[in-house]
């Protein structure tokens, strides 16, 4: 097992149930989209998958390591891009990446090689000397994705990584991450934007803390567009409620 497995995970904030028996998997080599409207529980799920929170029930398994039983082995195989940017604007790109490499125990030659490789994959090598503050939004996000790749994770988690970006940057980043998945990584991409999903991508539709559907995008869409199908699944219920 090289991907990500989420098995029957629930979580509550006090009496409010944020996640209710959520199960799905993200396989190696595929771009799995976690599709849900705002407030569906995507961010809570990300906090659980990165062990900022621990689920009272259910299991999360990363590349064969149970996050509850072997958190360090599991975390070592995860790369994360959070929804909120987590950048040191005053540092150079390379300095920032060195910091992150250090957190994963990489230093010296090994760190520099890993950083160069990650920057190359995102087409960011020539910007490594620039201050992060000088980068535009799209490049900042690419840098965060490169950062998440430094320690060669098996699973890449991205929480709405295109928020606030223009259409061109959005498309470029979506394409980049599809390439990463094609390269063998398990990618879980949370979004509420259907145009970031390709017909062959597996999709997990999350709504009000529950998984509504797990299937390939083309299958969910059927004869209509994915957007219309998504609205029918989630928005329709909203309107009825």
């Amino acid at each position: 097992m090289t991907g990500l497995d989420v098995e029957d995970v629930s979580y509550s904030y006090g009496t409010r149930r944020a996640l209710d028996g959520v199960s799905f998997s993200a396989e190696a080599g595929r771009f799995t989209a976690l599709l849900g409207p705002n407030g569906a529980g995507k961010s809570t799920l990300f906090s659980l998958m990165t062990r900022l929170l621990v689920p009272p029930s259910g299991r999360i398994v990363v590349a064969g390591h149970d996050l509850a039983r072997a958190p360090r082995q599991a975390l070592a195989r995860i790369g994360v891009v959070f929804q909120q940017p987590t950048l040191d604007l005053d540092l150079s790109v390379r300095r920032s990446l060195r910091y992150f490499a250090g957190l994963h125990g990489l230093s010296g030659r090994r760190a520099e090689t890993a950083i160069d490789a990650a920057l190359d994959r995102l087409g960011m090598r020539e910007r490594s000397g620039e201050q992060v503050r000088a980068l535009n939004g799209g490049h900042r996000r690419r840098m965060e994705i490169a950062r998440a790749l430094i320690h060669a994770p098996a699973v890449l988690l991205l929480d709405e990584p295109t928020v606030g970006l223009d259409a061109a940057s959005r498309q470029a980043i979506t394409a980049h991450v599809h390439d990463l998945a094609a390269g063998g990584m398990a990618v879980l991409w949370a979004t509420h934007l259907v145009d970031e999903i390709r017909p062959e991508d597996p999709v997990v539709v999350l709504h009000r803390g529950r998984v509504l559907v797990r299937a390939d995008a083309a299958e969910i869409a059927g004869t209509q567009s994915l957007g219309a199908a998504f609205l029918a699944l989630t928005g329709g219920e909203e309107a009825a409620a």
Partner: peptide, 8 residues
């Protein structure tokens, strides 16, 4: 959050 994703 980033710091705490380190496997240490």
């Amino acid at each position: 959050r980033l710091l705490l994703t380190s496997p240490l």
